[in-house]
């Protein structure tokens, strides 16, 4: 008896089912954005004609341009600063070895597993004492120095040939010039992968903005979704339309840069 074809069929059924479950909510989200809330709650599976109405309802409740602008601004500034600070540190830890810095790095690795929940209370008190609540600075600043990203860049730097730095020194470059003109261009794909991850995390960030952003003016897209969802009678048509809008940027990045996306997710593990 040969069970191989049977087993092979089983694998396909298993994977197909899993793939269906993974993808179905995306379909649900797309369909929902075109339907009325009552239909969504009743589980309507086909596209409807309510997209424009949902959009108008959404626009009447929130300043969508402003919200998107806020989210983009926060995500872009966070990404640029996080990459700069973390890659400098990762490069520094790997290229310039000293016993003290090695100890500091080990300490950072220990801190890596401390959840944000343990930090949010004192951080909030700090931010409010500095009178920074309701500012983007408050959202961005605490997340810039990411231990995970420092670790990621240090690991990636291990693949950066030391002789390249030596060659640049012989060629007359200062250390910061080596970083700028040799390291950064050489590590483009590392930066690309990191950009995707940091941007996505900043774009999707919820808890910390929820704590420090309390005026409607500077709300981000994630805060809008949660406000809409928490309503006494949530309008699911509007909510699902908003989730489509919120997911679109990361979804586009994923499909355009799939390889770097996955590489970034794998991050420091290799």
């Amino acid at each position: 008896m040969n069970f191989a074809p049977l087993r092979r069929a089983g694998v396909y059924v298993f994977l197909s089912l899993a793939a269906f479950i993974s993808v179905f909510p995306f379909y649900w989200m797309a369909v929902g954005s075109t339907n009325q809330s009552v239909d969504i709650v009743r589980g309507k599976l086909g596209f409807g004609g309510n997209l424009l109405v949902n959009f108008q309802h959404l626009m009447s409740q929130v300043d969508l341009y402003r919200v998107f602008g806020n989210s983009f601004l926060i995500a872009i500034i966070s990404t640029v600063l996080t990459l700069a600070i973390s890659s400098l540190a990762g490069y520094g830890f790997e290229m310039f070895r000293s016993r003290i810095r090695e100890r500091i790095f080990e300490l950072l690795l220990l801190l890596l597993s401390i959840p944000f929940a343990a930090l949010m209370v004192p951080l909030f008190v700090m931010i409010s004492r500095a009178q920074l609540t309701n500012t983007f600075t408050a959202v961005i600043l605490p997340g810039i120095a990411s231990i995970f990203m420092i670790f990621y860049f240090r690991q990636a730097t291990k693949a950066f040939p030391r002789e390249l730095r030596d060659a640049a020194r012989v060629d007359g470059l200062k250390e910061w010039q080596i970083f700028l003109y040799v390291y950064m261009p050489t590590m483009r794909s590392t930066y690309a992968a990191a950009t995707i991850i940091v941007f996505m995390n900043a774009w999707n960030n919820y808890l910390w903005p929820l704590i420090v952003l309390q005026t409607p003016d500077n709300k981000t897209i994630t805060l809008v979704i949660s406000t809409l969802t928490a309503a006494y009678t949530p309008d699911y048509g509007v909510i699902l339309l908003t989730t489509v809008l919120a997911t679109a940027p990361t979804l586009i990045i994923f499909f355009v840069l799939q390889r770097q996306f996955v590489q970034g997710m794998l991050g420091a593990v290799k």
């Binding site: 002789e163 060659a167 640049a168 020194r169 012989v170 050489t186 483009r188």
Partner: peptide
Amino acid sequence: VDPSKRGIAMVFQSYALYPH
């Protein structure tokens, strides 16, 4: 003195060419 001001040039084992 800095490497670049010693009047030397160096060829490395891995060649160390700037890949970009």
